[in-house]
Nucleic acid binder design. Structure first.
Length: 672
RNA sequence: GCCAGUUUAGCUCAGUGGUAGAGCACCCGAUUUGUAAUCGGACGGUCGUCGGUUCAAAUCCGACAACUGGCUCCA
């Protein structure tokens, strides 16, 4: 989750193009899947000869082929498509490679012969476009299996019969080359494996994934609710048991940050338009923000309407100038107009009366920095807040707790001098590692996003030396700490390099869980300065960091990571005391234990009902209570309790005091 | 936002044009029990919403909403 506006990477950028070398490294499984995509296309063409195909690559869990077809393919069509596919596999055609010239490929595409069973009356339009996009000098090849001929760099398995066990899984829609201006295609997904056993193991894993799904477990355990009708889509309600987890995480963050020298602040959930004009978030980020609330007085409204109208006129003029061939008679320049528009926007911001829900906390923190005069002696200043943000994510992007419109971020901004930067950055990094250890995150990867010098002044602020310097410092810290990271050029934020942490839940789903960004531009936009030793004002560097991400995504991740079986310190219900029967003396003994634990702030409940102990245990196990203390007459007489751990079963009886001490110790140390 | 799919009780799901069902949960009784299901009863739904077709709609048609899958890991 980014703190800041983020430009999408340019569509179809050549730097992402897979090289032929990459392709030759395709694994056996990828070859099977890619070949299966060709078999799929063959089958579709046998049923719908006018299908137009675009791309059909292997992907992480299988393969897909994008097809344009008037008929809407639905899962009901899968059986007959699969039947045609089985015929093609049974025919055991050779995957035959044919190297051709560019001219030949273009001619064949125009003749409709590519991704087809023969010549057709209309061109293979997507293949034609793809051929034309292949760089000069790169060899062009086809693969043929039986009648089916496709533009393809390969590689493939030897014969269609080598495609092992496969299954079509689902249909989705995809824009050609992922650009919504392009035609929308039907994407048929399937998966293939060497044999039936592996295919079945794959689907068993999917079942496991469904079982761990945070939305399902969240509902079962009563952690959170999504009430789209009354509260709104993407606006989660934290139920009491989920709130426990929220507050335990905040407690962890507060303790950790306190020891690391952070100070806490609190800020309102909204701010005036001027804030986001100054920060530069408007208008670029406006689409991701909730629309503003207007609290304008009559005369303010009038002035604002005038300015809005003038701005619209200027924008229209600018557009006509840019499209026009003849020079402007008034001698206006596009640059001048843009300056004037920017000036108008600043004036609009100055009117006030217009408030935005904040989509990020940094501007508020910057104003806290500005609220008092700062000396170099005050730095580094580390401002921390679990800040509430609101982002208007597109409706189709919403997903359980993972993608929401209201979120609370484990945010902090560290203001420091260039000399302090490396130490500060290292400390932030250490904090990430500390957290990973607590949560048992063994598999993670840091994505280090850097700038592209060619795009200084456009996509990236024009501070070439600062870019190089900070990137080098960040890289050094990562290398020194032996962290697993990848460097991704051209993906930095516009104001500095950033690190995103990718984690995988136990079922292999990938998430960006946390972010850490360097900012050497926005503090200047807010005119933030500190008084240095030489008695001059200097602009601080700023590190944005959110190692625990947002409550929403982090807890969504933890639910899947633990499959709802939270460690003791996080468990909504930590302990349940179960009596065997409801004999008065027994219940009194049990209540004494409950009271003792509750006095120590343990989340404990008692089940004193006269039901059978098996039934009570089942109840507690289903509720995922971490520790069950089973108490019968024998235990009472011995001053003992029988300890049973969720999912682990009975671990035996022990003296009451010992059991309580162990529980308190495990909670304090945040152990399982 | 776009394409597709889904929506029946708190949960899991039956119900293909003719009186809305089951199991579990919740509630009320009874059951005195040693580590994953004691028994009985009662309660619970305008079948997502709105509209249409029909003598009759959970069921057929349409619109809307919400949710879900996906929206370049490129020939």
């Amino acid at each position: 989750m980014s703190n800041e506006p983020e430009k999408l990477p340019a569509a179809g950028s050549d730097s992402q193009r897979k090289t032929l070398d990459d392709r030759q490294r395709m694994t056996d499984l990828e070859r099977i899947r890619h070949s299966c995509a060709h078999v799929l296309a063959t089958a579709i063409l046998r049923i719908w000869p006018d299908a137009q195909f675009a791309a059909g690559p292997p992907v992480e869990t299988g393969f897909y082929y994008d097809v344009e077809l008037a008929h809407r393919i639905s899962p009901e069509d899968f059986p007959r498509i699969e039947e045609e596919m089985r015929k093609e596999i049974k025919a055991n055609h050779v995957f035959e490679k044919v190297v051709v010239t560019r001219e030949q490929a273009i001619a064949d595409a125009k003749a409709g012969r590519l991704a087809a069973l023969g010549e057709r009356s209309v061109p293979s339009k997507f293949k034609l476009d793809i051929v034309q996009g292949i760089p000069e000098g790169e060899p062009i090849s086809y693969f043929r299996n039986g009648d089916f001929l496709d533009l393809c760099a390969g590689p493939h398995v030897m014969r269609t019969g080598n495609v092992g066990a496969f299954r079509l899984t689902h249909v989705a829609s995809a824009y050609y080359k992922g650009d919504e201006r392009n035609p929308q295609l039907q994407r048929i997904y399937g998966t293939a494996f060497k044999n039936k056993t592996e295919l079945e193991a794959h689907f068993a894993m999917i079942e496991e994934a469904k079982r761990r799904d945070h939305r399902k477990i969240g509902a079962e355990m009563g952690l959170f609710a999504l009430d789209a009708e009354y509260v709104g889509p993407g606006l989660p309600l934290w139920l009491p048991r989920g709130t426990v987890i929220v507050e335990e995480l905040e407690k962890l963050a507060k303790e950790t940050e306190f020891q690391a020298g952070y100070v806490r602040v609190r800020t309102p959930h909204l701010a005036k338009e001027k804030m986001y004009r100054t920060s530069g978030h408007l208008p670029y980020y406006a689409e991701s923000m909730f629309p503003p609330m207007e609290m304008l007085e009559e005369d303010e409204r009038k002035k604002r309407d005038q300015l809005t109208e003038k701005r619209a006129d200027l924008i229209q003029l600018l557009e006509s100038m840019e499209n026009a061939v003849s020079p402007n008679p008034k001698g206006l320049t596009p640059e001048g107009l843009r300056r004037e528009i920017a000036q108008l926007e600043v004036e609009m911001g100055l009117i006030g009366g217009r408030y935005y829900l904040k989509a990020m906390n940094c501007p508020h923190h910057h104003r806290i920095f500005a609220a008092e005069p700062r000396s170099y002696r005050d730095l580094p200043l580390r401002l921390a807040e679990y800040g509430s943000c609101y982002r208007y994510e597109q409706s189709g992007e919403l997903f359980g707790l993972m993608r929401v419109r209201a979120l609370q971020m484990n945010d902090a901004h560290i203001y420091c001098t260039a000399e302090q930067f490396a130490d500060e950055f290292r400390a932030v990094n250490d904090m990430y590692l500390k957290y990973f250890k607590i949560f048992g995150l063994e598999k993670y990867q840091m994505r280090f996003s850097t700038h592209d010098p060619a795009k200084l002044g456009q996509k990236f602020v024009n501070e070439p030396e600062l870019w190089v310097k900070t990137e080098a410092m960040v890289r050094d810290v990562l290398v020194q700490s032996g962290i697993n990271f990848v460097e991704v050029p051209n993906e930095a934020a516009f104001y500095g390099p950033k690190i995103d942490v990718q984690v995988w839940s136990a079922i292999g789903r990938e998430f960006t869980i946390a972010t850490n960004q360097v900012d050497f531009a926005v503090p200047a936009r807010f005119g933030l300065t500190y008084r240095d030793r030489d008695n001059t004002g200097k602009t601080p560097l700023c590190i944005h960091r959110a190692p625990l991400g947002t409550h929403e995504r982090f807890i969504g991740f933890l639910i899947e990571h633990y499959a709802g079986n939270f460690p003791l310190w996080l468990a909504p219900e930590q302990v349940r005391v179960l009596t065997i029967g409801d004999d008065d003396a027994l219940v009194a003994y049990a209540k004494g234990i409950v009271d003792e634990l509750r006095a120590q702030f343990v989340r404990v409940e008692g089940d004193y009902s006269p039901n059978k102990i098996n039934g009570k245990i089942l109840d507690a196990e289903k509720s995922k209570v971490h520790t069950m203390l089973v108490i019968g007459g024998r235990d009472r007489d011995a001053g003992a309790v029988s300890v049973r751990l969720h999912g682990k079963g009975n671990v035996g009886a022990k003296p009451k005091a010992e059991a309580i001490a162990e529980i308190l110790g495990a909670i304090r140390e945040r152990k399982g």
